[in-house]
């Protein structure tokens, strides 16, 4: 864990975009998909996600671990949705087409399956954009981008500081934990969970103390170099928006607007009902 996100430096259309246009694009796509349960709209975003991934040149096999995690949680979500409320689809769409029945309560209907597949497609459409944003944006650009879309720079800079010091604190934690284990602290699965949690807290104490020292130092260093002097600040890692950036912003915002229009004028609500 040398760096939090494995930003991969490369030369592609996606990499070369400004952080801020990528952030806007990512947010626009997320809102589009959050808003609607219309698979046609979600389908469009999914196709875009696949295309953008292609263009970025990022290999899926580099993301193997992340993808395993995501598919695990999505599957879990799928099963849990069914267990908690197997009749939701029927109530939602107002018809009932039984596919098969496990018990009386747990009956799978076309409506339920359709609802759950729609939900999965929502994850499938947004997650790639989130990954792309983190993988193709230089961490240094995060703060500048957030500041640019309206967040105060002090808040934005906290994000930057977190990215800066998290690896240091993590390696400090490692060494503190090892030194305690050397004194006989049992942290492996051999130890009871309750006891283990108590031991974790014990180790956090020195970590907090040293982090407080560190914060003191950081704030001194920032004060001494005039942080928070003005209401604004400039950023080294910021770029002028290029033609590509503006196109991306217009394009993604248009798609979002389109999804709003579909919701209001065509579906008269967030759901598209193919059953009537």
């Amino acid at each position: 864990m040398k760096k939090l996100f494995n930003y991969n430096e490369a030369d592609s259309f996606v990499h070369n975009l400004c952080g801020v246009s990528k952030l806007i694009g990512f947010l626009a796509m997320t809102f589009t998909v959050m808003l609607t349960f219309d698979v046609r709209v979600i389908g469009v975003v999914m196709v875009l996600a696949v295309l953008t991934f292609r263009v970025s040149g990022i290999k899926l096999r580099d993301l193997k671990v992340v993808l395993y995690y995501i598919s695990f949680f999505v599957t879990l979500n799928f099963i849990m949705t069914f267990i908690f409320d197997p009749g939701y689809g029927v109530r939602l769409y107002g018809t009932e087409h039984v596919l098969f029945a496990i018990t009386e309560r747990y009956t799978m209907t076309e409506e339920q399956l359709f609802y759950q597949l729609t939900k999965i497609s929502k994850y499938a459409a947004t997650i790639p954009f989130g990954l792309l944003f983190f993988l193709t944006t230089h961490p240094s650009e995060f703060a500048a981008s957030m500041n640019r879309i309206g967040l105060h720079y002090k808040v934005a800079y906290t994000v930057s500081l977190t990215l800066r010091y998290l690896p240091d604190i993590y390696s400090e934690y490692q060494i503190i934990s090892k030194a305690q284990q050397a004194r006989g602290l049992e942290m492996s699965k051999k130890q009871k969970l309750g006891k283990r949690i108590k031991e974790y807290f014990k180790m956090i104490f020195p970590l907090i103390m040293s982090s407080l020292d560190r914060i003191n130092n950081i704030s001194d260093a920032m004060d001494l170099r005039g942080f928070a002097k003005h209401n604004k600040r400039t950023w080294y890692h910021t770029r002028k928006l290029s033609r590509d950036d503006i196109m991306v912003i217009i394009f993604t915002v248009t798609i979002f607007a389109g999804s709003v229009a579909v919701t209001i004028f065509i579906n008269h609500g967030r759901f598209w009902n193919p059953f009537i």
């Binding site: 240094s140 930057s160 990215l163 950081i218 001194d220 170099r225 942080f227 400039t234 080294y236 910021t238």
Partner: peptide, 28 residues
């Protein structure tokens, strides 16, 4: 300052060097 780590507030060498200038609104 003495603590070489604590006072390094930038995510990279160059960002740390220009930190004071950024606060002073010097253009990119």
């Amino acid at each position: 300052l003495q603590d070489t780590d604590g006072q390094f507030v930038g995510l990279s060498v160059v960002e740390d060097i220009v930190f004071a200038l950024e606060n002073d609104l010097v253009p990119t």
